[in-house]
Simulated scan of single mutants.
Amino acid sequence: MKTEILKMILPMAVIAVAVTGAFSSNAMNKNSKAFAIKQGYTHTSPSSACNISNQCSDAIGDICTVGLEEQQLFGKTNPNAATCNVILYKQ
């Protein structure tokens, strides 16, 4: 009797562990891609060109700045964008 129950429960437990592992590894892959290093740019006004500066992150935290005056750095929505208006954060 015990072996019949074990034969039924063991495959279900193995499948449950496999499914749980698949979902957790998929979530880790998505999280690692979510927060990436981004190029930070400085600009003096919204209409001025973006000047390349330091590396920042898009993970929410302290605002990414540069220099003694702590000038805020911004990112581009895509690499070909003419404006840099995406808020970036320190790595």
Rank of each mutant, 00 (worst) to 15 (best):
V14N: 10
V14L: 15
V14Q: 08
I15W: 11
I15V: 12
A16Q: 11
V17P: 00
V17Y: 07
V17Q: 06
V19K: 07
V19L: 14
G21N: 09
F23V: 02
F23R: 03
F23Y: 13
F23C: 10
F23E: 12
S24D: 11
S25R: 06
S25F: 11
N26R: 07
N26E: 12
N26Q: 13
A27V: 05
M28L: 15
N29G: 02
K30H: 10
N31S: 08
S32D: 09
A34D: 00
F35V: 03
Q39I: 01
G40V: 01
G40E: 06
G40I: 01
Y41W: 01
T42L: 13
H43W: 12
T44Y: 04
S45M: 05
S47D: 12
C50I: 07
N51I: 14
I52C: 01
I52K: 03
I52Y: 03
N54Y: 02
N54P: 04
Q55F: 10
C56E: 06
C56S: 08
C56G: 09
C56Q: 07
S57Y: 00
D62M: 02
D62A: 10
I63A: 14
I63D: 15
C64W: 06
V66E: 03
E69Y: 13
E70Y: 11
Q72H: 00
Q72R: 06
L73Y: 04
F74W: 15
F74L: 15
G75C: 08
K76D: 12
T77P: 01
T77W: 01
T77M: 07
P79G: 05
P79V: 02
P79N: 03
N80K: 02
N80L: 07
N80Y: 05
N80Q: 05
A81C: 07
A81L: 10
V86A: 04
I87E: 14
L88N: 01
L88R: 08
L88F: 01
Y89N: 14
